[in-house]
């Protein structure tokens, strides 16, 4: 447990000392969302209708930006080898990496989301559900993404390959996340979608760390 704590603190410190890696995905997120009204026109009805989808897609792509470096720096400077041979519980280590990625990439997005929702003319009820769906969905994005990052860490120019591998796996998260918001915007019940997102998160939290650990062993060995 102490080694997990040490790893989380170290990764957080490393992340905070490289502010551009936190800020760039955020700026990307805001800029993509600024492009949509320019592309489809400023009418509030259209924007409110497509807002759940585009905010979710923008969040998903912004998550993708930080994923490539998730294991890469550790792989290049040998810290990952140390983790592997250090006798630590590797799935737990993988999970703490995912946790740090989520804190550094998703939490700032979550803070910005209500603002972006307002700019897209969503009403407060829908923004609340959008926020909730992103809160449950973004850890899923980080976990699935870490799986792809672990598989491609040894590959040169792996970032394109990474998106090819994990974007299809993001489909269910995107569907349930956006449909929860659409349902809320129409005044319908959205508990089903949120519950399924939660179920997928529980499944991913329990199985994915084992797979990420196996993938890391393959990539580093």
């Amino acid at each position: 447990m102490r080694s997990v704590q040490a790893l989380v603190v170290r990764d957080l410190a490393l992340g905070i000392r490289r502010p551009s890696e936190i800020l760039n995905p955020l700026i990307f997120f805001v800029m993509v969302l600024t492009l949509f009204p320019l592309g489809v026109g400023p009418s509030p009805e259209i924007l409110a209708r497509i807002a759940p989808g585009i905010i979710w897609v923008a969040a998903l792509l912004a998550t993708l930006l930080g994923l490539d470096s998730l294991f890469r720096t550790d792989y290049e400077d040998g810290a990952l080898d140390q983790l592997l041979v250090g006798g630590n519980h590797l799935p737990l280590m993988a999970l703490s990496k995912v946790l740090v990625h989520w804190i550094l990439s998703a939490v700032p997005l979550l803070i910005l989301t209500p603002l972006m929702g307002l700019m897209m003319h969503l009403d407060w009820a829908a923004i609340r559900v959008l926020w909730l769906s992103l809160l449950i969905g973004s850890p899923l994005l980080s976990i699935i993404g870490a799986l792809g990052a672990a598989l491609t860490v040894g590959v040169k120019r792996g970032s394109v390959l990474l998106s090819l591998l994990i974007l299809p796996l993001y489909v269910p998260v995107l569907i349930f996340g956006t449909s929860a918001v659409s349902a809320a915007a129409m005044g319908l019940d959205y508990n089903v979608q949120i519950a399924i997102l939660g179920a997928m998160l529980a499944l991913a939290l329990s199985l994915a760390p084992l797979v990420i650990a196996a993938a890391l062993r393959v990539s580093v060995s």
Binding site: L147, L151, G154, L165, P168, L169, V171, P172, I175, F176, S179, I196, M200, L207, V211, A214, A215, V218, S219, S221
Partner: peptide, 28 residues
């Protein structure tokens, strides 16, 4: 040697996901 190991892992991850994807697309 590495490639085939990564291939196996991805194939198994994919096959777990195929029903989830199919079901969610159906829902959507």
């Amino acid at each position: 040697q590495k490639a085939i190991k990564a291939f196996r892992i991805l194939a198994l991850v994919g096959v777990v996901n195929v029903p989830i994807i199919h079901y969610s697309v159906h829902f959507w």
